[in-house]
Nucleic acid binder design. Structure first.
Lengths: 204, 204
DNA sequence: GCCATAAGATACGGCGCGTTTCCTGTCTTC
DNA sequence: GAAGACAGGAAACGCGCCGTATCTTATGGC
């Protein structure tokens, strides 16, 4: 019952290891850009990367994880957060760099991906950990603690929940709104919630 | 090419209209309770309700909307929010009733549903509207404005974004955590964020 | 009792995931 | 430089489940 095999000559040399992996993740990015997340298929990625599905599944267990790997590559470095001497500016700059990481992808691609990420409990945990370990929440903590040292902020307010507050609100706005929160939304979050909460009361 | 049909005698009388609809939505609830959202199938619902898929699709365009209808039935009445005279108590009671609406369903059922709801832009809008029009955000507004009248709260703080703040944070906690936020989480949100933000500064 | 309407049974097409099977190119090792 | 391990590559498959189409038959309105 064995099928004769079509002596697969493609002409192209066979890629392996990191080179192949880069080609695949590039293909994922391109497919995201072209079709969005919901219509990104494993077949599509394999075809674009000029490889085959088993190659994908040897490296990643499923679709989400593949996209996690592709998007994780351009992670910015949060270890040196902005330090302008002004709390609001620091926050705005950091949040801006976060929100615009994926601006060259269609907005619904990132949204669909994040939504799908929420479905897997394990990935939620990984994602959440990624926020704190040298991630944006750590950066927010640095920014806020520096402001506290300057006397701009009441240090007693800086609980973990407050440190991640800006992120939590913007993530929710993204999930509910379907698109990256506008500068106005960021401004509202900062000026109506985060900053009023952090500022030390004037009347000492 | 017509197939002979098995002269479908089931013996049971044929339900119609509201009675049938109720049976279907009950079946949805039961399937949610038993299998969760991800493994709720249209076939499963149809079988449990002792009807067939076309009957479902004549009423709802797809799976999510069917579940929306089933879960929407036990919507509590937010038109008379708690009024104990204490802001924190009022908020805690309201948020508690919100969070525990679906306690007889497995937690991942509600979570999976909400996640899926996020995928459809139209449903997101409907959901968001449902929060404000005689919904929980309206109730929060009532509670907060009453507190402002009592002098507990700075009325200038009561922007739309602040009114929905508790809800936004708890929804995010639910989405990220995978389970209904614990009382402790609710307490943190109230005591570390919402209340400190709203309270009028002591030093007039 | 007639007829429009909707219930119900069944089958189907489609899609995309994740897997299996087998062949073949390439790197390693001796 | 030959042998063999290893991983890439091609094709096809099973499966689950969605949403639809088709056709029969019960039921309520008139």
């Amino acid at each position: 019952m064995r099928k004769p095999v079509a002596s697969g000559r493609t002409g192209a040399p066979r890629r392996r290891g990191d080179e192949l992996e880069r080609a695949i993740l590039d293909a994922v990015w391109a497919e995201l850009a072209e079709h969005g997340y919901d219509r990104l298929t494993m077949d599509g990625v394999a075809a674009r990367a000029r490889t085959s599905k088993p190659v994908l599944y040897r490296r990643w267990p499923n679709r989400v994880e593949l996209v996690v790997a592709a998007l994780g590559r351009n992670a910015p470095d949060f270890r040196e957060p902005p330090d302008t001497g002004d709390l609001r500016t620091d926050l705005a700059v950091l949040l801006g760099s976060l929100l615009h990481r994926f601006d060259d992808l269609p907005t619904d691609a990132v949204h669909g991906f994040l939504v799908d990420l929420m479905r897997d409990p394990e990935l939620r945990v990984v994602f959440h950990r990624g926020l704190t370990a040298d991630g944006p929440v750590d950066a927010l903590a640095t920014i806020m603690h520096r402001a506290a040292e300057r006397g701009e902020v009441d240090p007693a307010r800086l609980t973990p929940r407050v440190l991640s507050l800006p992120l939590d609100l913007l993530r929710d706005a993204f999930l509910m709104g379907g698109s990256v929160p506008s500068d106005q939304v960021v401004a509202e979050v900062l000026d109506e919630i985060v900053l009023p909460l952090l500022r030390v009361p004037a009347g000492g």
